[in-house]
């Protein structure tokens, strides 16, 4: 299912506990899934049915960021869960970030 995404938009997996927020999003309609299923707009929007699709599980980790190859989309995991994010059916990749000492 296609949707438009803006930075700051929240995505709740419909089939697991994973929650994401859009850090970066391409203009226009995008086909994003979490756990292989279109996300919902709030925790209350989950109807409890369905499950993580094959190949779309394995665990989204707290604080990690997920991007497509061209980094046109970037989703940050705010609540971990089994389902992984995907764009156009392709799983997003974990974005490597250099750990910096906390200066404040």
């Amino acid at each position: 299912m296609s949707m438009t995404l803006k930075p700051g938009a929240r995505l709740f997996s419909a089939v697991c506990t994973t929650e994401m927020i859009a850090v970066k999003a391409p203009p226009g309609e995008v086909d994003v899934t979490i756990g292989g299923v279109a996300p919902v707009g709030s925790a209350a929007g989950r109807d409890g049915s369905g499950s993580v699709a094959d190949g779309h599980g394995g665990g989204a980790a707290m604080g990690k960021r997920y991007v497509d190859q061209g980094e046109t989309i970037e989703l940050l995991c705010t609540k971990p869960g089994d389902g992984l994010p995907a764009l156009d059916g392709q799983l997003l990749a974990l974005k490597e970030a250099k750990a910096l000492p906390s200066s404040d």
Partner: peptide, 14 residues
């Protein structure tokens, strides 16, 4: 992103 998103992130993650 807007700082208000950070509030929602706190509510979600913490």
């Amino acid at each position: 992103m807007h700082l208000s998103s950070l509030v929602e992130m706190v509510e979600s993650g913490f």
